[in-house]
Design a protein around this nucleic acid. Structure first.
Lengths: 235, 235
DNA sequence: CTCCCTACGTCAATGCCGTTGACATACCCT
DNA sequence: AGGGTATGTCAACGGCATTGACGTAGGGAG
């Protein structure tokens, strides 16, 4: 007992740190996002977070049980930002497309955080709201419940999966990024047409396409296939 | 000069460690995969790897520039394993489905490694072979080059994205996993039907679906949509 | 067969990291 | 006004990746 972490809603005392900062779970999450955006994913350490907050590093443990716990909170915050201000239009396909792009964009805005947190199920408030919204769109569109659940699952995991992958590219330090490009030039762009005819034939298209996220296209394919099923409720 | 790492193909001297083990890049990658499979992703440290190999930890740096470099090698090894023994059947849709499932399965077999490495572009031999195969299937199926490249990109990134996400679930320690399930029970399964009608109506379906990967379904949707486009080369 | 060069395994040190137990203070409630 | 305790702080622990220096033994040259 005398648990180290007191849940945020029932916090009463707020005692400023030596440097005069009044801490809160929200401030810590925001500071963590800022830190990670400025200095990369590897900057997210308890010690540096403490320094950025103006507090002793161990103060963080009064708000989160562990760094993992903090990560979950960050993930939920991003999900919340993705939904901020969203309103359904009534067109299920457009609505799902918008939600998917919003989730993706929210994570792309904090690639390092996405890399750390997008693959976690948070079970927190913002995540639950998102689930409710997506399921509602599908059921109102006329998908029978089992189909709605299956499409929901594919849709959500697709957006999160792409978020992680695309974040990984953005999160790489500039040095590694240019190194990656040189690897590409060295290995792919000059492959022998006799051993790798298909890469050789499409090399120019590949280099152009590589620089964009494939998510919008993949999302459109998923939605098109889902719509095609609305008519045929078989199989 | 006197570079710390000598590339594997031109290695001549093989000097056993104190414990009598003869090292090689391959042995290190295999040992890393075994380590990570046995004791989780957090067990992949240079020190523990050294111990598992029967060598001083710093010997690893004679074969890889950094842990990141090692990770890339592990990723490429998994891609290679996914393709091992694969042969095209001539049915493009079945072939792509098989490759997708193989990639996914290869990473699921080593979830901790997948989590660390699936979002990296390796540029190494096995990755290049996979790219060539997939592009070949699409171009032979009759997709025009720009379309083939776009579908290739969506297909590959979707497979890797799902691999990361599904690996994350498998990689969680047993304790965290059951904790997750309890969170689910506590928050989702008993949500008020008036505030969250859609979750409440489908809760039983959600819990059943949650335990499977959505990848096969998402893959089928992608392939169905791609096939639908083969006829209409417009837009 | 011998000698030399240097590749590569080893050692030790550096500066990080997360986490925790003990402590003290100042906040809030009564 | 006073007490209980929440919360910020301090110090310490063990583990981490990485690197420079060292020496020994493998292999090529003659």
């Amino acid at each position: 007992m005398t648990e180290r972490v007191v849940p945020e809603p029932e916090r009463k005392r707020r005692r400023p740190t030596k440097q005069g900062v009044v801490l809160s779970a929200e401030l810590i999450v925001d500071t963590a996002l800022r830190l990670v955006g400025l200095h990369g994913a590897e900057a997210l350490t308890v010690r540096r977070l403490g320094a950025a907050l103006g507090a002793d590093p161990s103060a963080v443990y009064r708000y989160f049980h562990s760094t993992d716990d903090l990560l979950i909170a960050i993930a939920d915050e991003l999900i919340g930002r993705a939904q901020h201000g969203w309103r359904p239009t009534g067109d299920w396909r457009a609505d799902l497309r918008a939600i998917g792009l919003r989730i993706h964009a929210a994570y792309q805005a904090h690639p390092q955080a996405a890399l750390l947190a997008a693959h976690r199920t948070t079970g927190r408030a913002n995540e639950i709201t998102a689930v409710e919204n997506i399921l509602g769109i599908l059921r109102n569109a006329g998908f029978p419940d089992p189909e709605a659940v299956r499409i929901y699952h594919a849709f959500v995991d697709q957006s999160l999966g792409f978020a992680v992958l695309d974040a990984a590219a953005l999160a790489l330090p500039a040095a590694a990024l240019s190194a990656d490009y040189q690897v590409w030039q060295a290995s792919y762009a000059r492959l022998d047409a006799t051993t790798h005819p298909h890469i050789a034939a499409t090399a120019h298209l590949l280099t152009a396409d590589m620089n964009r996220s494939a998510y919008p296209h993949a999302l459109d394919l998923l939605l098109a296939a889902a719509e095609a099923r609305l008519g045929r409720p078989d199989d």
